[in-house]
Structure formats: C-alpha cells, structure tokens
Nucleic acid binder design. Structure first.
Lengths: 351, 351
DNA sequence: CTGAAAGCGCTTACAG
DNA sequence: CTGAAAGCGCTTACAG
C-alpha cells in the first residue's frame, strides 16, 4: 500500500503539501501543485490510512451505531439507511448490540470511543449525561433517536418520531369498527420510547371518550416472546380486550401467534395493531395492520445530519439540532369488526 | 484519557516496559516490576489506544463482518454469536452489508482492510482469490462460511454447513406424508450455498426414487419478495407441486403468504418447508417446518476460531482449518397430508 | 504558497 | 531484565 511519502516523492513535494491537498485543509495550495499531487495520488491509487489519521487526532471516518436488538428487522432497515448515507461519504460502521442490557450498552459505547469513532448513532438505547459528556470530551458527534428529555446534555442531534398521526389514525379506525375494550402491550417501562408510544395511544383514545383507566396495560419487551407472554396474561383475565395495540411489530406477531394457538381468530375475535411496518408484517396472515415508522429515512437522516456536523469545525457543533419524522397508519386484515358485533347488527364483514 | 506515558511515570519505569507487560509481549519482565505496572495501570484505569496500536502494525482489536442481507434475521443470530465470542476478548465489530451486490461487497471489504481489521468473517458473500490474497498481504485472518470450493486460496478458516441431515429428514417426512410432486425455490444461482442446498434436496429425493427432472426449480433471491414471485410463477403452470422447499425461511414466508392470497391452504393444498429456523418462523400460521441452521453457533464458532488464529504468530497461521456444523429438521404445521389424499384414503389429519 | 520538524500513542529491535 | 530511540502514516503549528 502506498503511503503519503510515495505520493510526495512522485509529485516532487513534501508530505505536508500532499496532506494539505488530500485532507481538505483550509491552507491555500497553488493550483498547479495541487494538480500534481492529485495526479500522483491517482496513479498510485493512494488512500490515506484512516488509522494514522485517527492517531493525530483527526477523523477516523468511522461511525458507531448502537442498537438494542439486532434481531429486530426494524433496525436492519434503519442500518440500511445509515449505510447508504455513510458509504458514499467514506464512513465505515461499527455496529454494537446491547440486547437491552445497560451494562453491555455502556461497554459497547466505550469501546467505540476507544476506537475514536467520529460519530455515534444511538437508537432507542439509553444514554446518560456523563456518557454524552465523555463523547464531547473526545469530540464525537452524536445523533440520538427518541432522545430521552431527561437528558440535560445539549449538543446532540435529536431525531424525534411523531407517533401521534399514525397512532391516532389507527385508533380512529378501531373505534369506527366498534371496539371499546382496548389493551396495550408496551415495551420495557424504563425506555423513553415506550412512554411516547403508550401516551400517544392513550391520548388518542381519551380524545374519543375512552378513559385511560379502562385500557389494560401489559408490559412486554419488544420481542416476539414478550408478545406471546402478554397474550397469555391478557386472556387469563376476566376482561378480554377486543383490540390490542402492541408497541412494535415483533410483539404483535408473537401476540397474534399465541392468540391463534388459543383458538381465537384474528380479527373475528380480537383485532391486532402493531407498530414499525417491518416487511414480514405484510406476509403475516392476516396481514398485520401497523403504525409504520419511516425506518430507512430515520437511518438516512441520522447519518446525513451527522456527516454534516462531523465535517464542521468542532467549535460550531454546539447548537442543538432537532429533526422530526412522522408515523403513518397502514391498514391490514388483522383489524376488523368483531364477530359478535356482526351477528348483532346483521352486517357482513368486508375484506 | 491516560496514556502509556502516565502509566510509565506512575510505575517509575519506561514506556517500553509498560508496553511489554500490557501487550503480552514474550520478553521477560521481573515479577515485581510487572506488579507495579499492573497496579499503576489499574489505578489510572488505563486502556491502550487501539488506534495507536494499529498504527505500529499491531492488532487493532477490530473484526469485520460482511453479510449479504442485514434484513435477514438469520444474520442477526449469527452476529449475536460473533459478538458474544468477540466482546469478552476485546474485539469490536465493523459490520458491512452487501445487499447481494458484488461491487458493494468489494468496496465494503476494502474499507475494512483500510481500517486495518485484524480479522474478517465472510458470510455467504462471494470472496475471490485476489481479494483473499489482499487479506494475506495485510496479515488479516479470515473465516468464511459456506466457502466456495472454487477458491484455490489456502489459509482461511472454513466453516461448512452440512445441509444433508436436516434436509434428508425433512424429505423423508414429506414422502411419508404422500408427497410426490415437489418444487424447490432456490437462491441466486451464482451463490455456492444455493448449489449446496439444491443438491442436498435433489439428492435426498433421488435416493427415494424421485428423479431430479421431476422436481420443478424456480430461482429466488433469499428474500420474502422472491418467495412471493416464485409462488406466482409456480402456480401459473399446469403442474402444481404439492410440496415446496424454499432455500431459506424468508422465501418460505413470502411463498406461504402469496399461496394463501391465492386462496390455497397450507398444508391442506400445499406443504411448505423452509430453511434457517429464524424465530419468526414459529410465530407463523401455520408454524413453519424448517431445516434449522445452528445460527448462533456458526457465529460463535467463526469468531472464536478467528480469535485463536489472530492471537497466533502470523507464520503459524497458514494451515487450513475446516469446521463443520449440522442442520436439523424442525417439524411444523406447514407440512402435512394433502386434502385429496385424505379424502381418497379416509384418513383424518392430525395436528 | 511550501517545507522541516514535532507529535499523536504505541511497539520493538537494539544496546546495555 | 530494562531503557533510549526509531518508527508506524499522517497532520499541523511554525518558519520562511
């Protein structure tokens, strides 16, 4: 592999000049010299060694991505968006998976800091103020999705998701179909996104006269297993809901599987609504109605805004940046009118 | 962040000694000195800067993982295995996604080489001899799953999958249930793993008297969309199969979805068999019968054997290492006796 | 506009 | 057994 010395020799200049041309330094270089350097670099197919750059405190062209469950196809789409925005700009990705484990999350984050990543994208993981301060110290930009407002730390890019439009539309549809008895399977209660999803749901119901206290809440874990467990708990109670909103698609899938195993039919006996819009949801039978997140867009936005910031002078990075994406209701066959309502009214179920 | 200088000062020795103690160098160090260094390092919570180590030609403690479709939950499980084997040993992961695109795969691989990864795990991606030679040049160890025998390059760790036991058991079960008309939805034909899966299937059938020429073959893409397209092609023909083996679960899921949309029932009209054993398969309705891969184990094995090799002296790394894992048939409700066979014999379908 | 030189944090022959 | 010194490949004040 050619080094900067080879390029300098070939172009007949010093390594300092080569570096200035190739690293986009602000120092002026005579156009003719610049040309010679560029030409030499091209002929040698020279690419700066990111490890060496990293050592002298410059960018390493790496970005770390930390997700809480790499088994969730939701993240796959987000990562695709991140890759597509980052690869053309020359960034490589470190990927870390916390498995919802805080300790593991912190150790993954630290190892990324050790590797001198230029930026970090935190997806539904819990960040803390001291951790963010550590990033500042190392001059690492960060982009956080569904940022917990409890964080007082400034200077991160925050990508927030507006859950309201998608959830509200879904709720209206469920009410329209005659549902009054609702349940919600949440994620772990200590996650901020869990709170947002629950509140958007309860709020939309409350606006239409269904009080929060009437909605059964069961805590899940954002995985299929949590959905299955939730179904078992919900249907061992005396009050069975007619419509269940799972805080993500994976739980909705587990929920539906367990409900069918118990001999109930979807949507004739109970309607199921998910959230995320993962591909497999549409292959499900009946196809899963869901509140879709713009997954690819979230990743692309997180990365492209991060790239812009990483390229800035560190002193200009302090101001907060808040971006927002919206959810959207995607109808599906998993929600419908209950059979007993049909029987009572003489209606015929449509597709 | 403390540097090696701080540790040296605190322990009252030179940086050379600190390095020798902390980097596991073979040079002998007096026990008392070693103790002092260790103590100083602990007190300062010193961790060597991997970027600096990388620069002087030593390990960077990074491993690259290249997958062809990060949206496939199969890889998520493999990556978990890789992480669990790598994290405790101090390795961080670069993850690259080729999207089945050879050009993208090569550029991802090159960027990992640029970042001086110590090792690389290639999953069902296509490696070429020149590429592997490039890795050798940089002293990068590599572990390849389902390695294409067309590669003449020696010195990689090869993890091969024995598809035979799982596929054979599944085929026997299908024959037992009375099936004689089979179809197979393959992956892209240029992938070696596609070839292995197809041959194991055709071979198992041939042994029981079903000739290869009688099996309909449709090419897919290892994604749900390919399964859906395959269903459309298969059922627009005059000869409809009664049992279909999809070369992975994602295609089986797409296949099943499209078949149901066409008004056919599974397994009463057609039986479906997948391969992989991803979690969602069991939530599917009917639960998907599949040929399970030891996904986590594959990742764990690939990483742990790689770690062992990376720690070795480069001169001792040349010998080839071949490891094998086995598949296993996992029964499911998606395969059963056809209704018309039932009608003819007066049998009652079991669960 | 350009170069010589120091430095980023570590490792490793080379002396002693 | 240990230290002084060179070097990994790049960047950046500092001179000129």
């Amino acid at each position: 592999m050619p080094t900067i010395l080879d390029v300098a020799a070939k172009a007949g200049v010093s390594t300092a000049t080569v570096s200035r041309v190739l690293s986009g330094s602000p120092s002026p270089v005579r156009p003719a010299t610049r040309e010679r350097v560029l030409e030499a670099a091209r002929q040698l197919a020279y690419k700066p060694n990111p490890v060496a750059r990293g050592l002298c405190g410059k960018s390493t062209n790496t970005v770390g991505v930390i997700v809480s469950d790499i088994g969730n196809p939701f993240y796959a789409d987000v990562i695709k968006g991140i890759e597509d925005a980052g690869l053309p700009e020359g960034y490589s990705l470190f990927v870390g998976n916390t498995n919802f484990d805080l300790v593991r999350g912190e150790s993954v984050l630290r190892s990324m800091v050790d590797h001198r990543v230029d930026g970090l994208i935190l997806l539904f993981s819990r960040a803390t103020d001291p951790l963010l301060a550590l990033l500042d110290e190392h001059n690492i930009c960060v982009s956080i999705v569904d940022r917990d407002p409890a964080l007082t730390h400034q200077g991160a890019i925050a990508i927030s998701v507006d859950y309201e439009p998608g959830i509200r539309a879904a709720v209206h549809r469920l009410l329209e179909l005659g549902h009054r008895d609702f349940a919600h399977v949440t994620g772990p209660r200590n996650l901020h996104t869990t709170h947002l999803r629950r509140e958007a749901f309860l709020q939309a119901l409350a606006e239409r006269g269904i009080e929060r206290s009437r909605v059964q809440i069961v805590e899940g874990d954002y995985r299929t297993g949590g959905g299955e467990a939730a179904a078992r708990r919900l249907f061992s109670r005396h009050l069975s809901p007619t419509a269940i909103f799972a805080a993500n698609d994976l739980m909705a899938i587990g929920l539906a599987a367990e409900i069918k195993r118990r001999g109930m039919r979807i949507p004739e006996d109970v309607s199921i609504l998910g959230l995320d819009g993962i591909d497999q949801a549409s292959c499900f039978q009946p196809s899963l109605a869901t509140v879709a997140m713009p997954r690819y867009e979230i990743g692309h936005l997180a990365m492209s805004s991060l790239v812009r910031r990483m390229r800035k002078d560190p002193r200009e990075r302090s101001q907060a940046l808040e971006l927002e994406v919206r959810t959207q209701f995607v109808p599906g066959a998993s929600i419908g009118t209950r059979r007993e309502l049909l029987d009572a009214s003489g209606f015929q179920a449509g597709r």
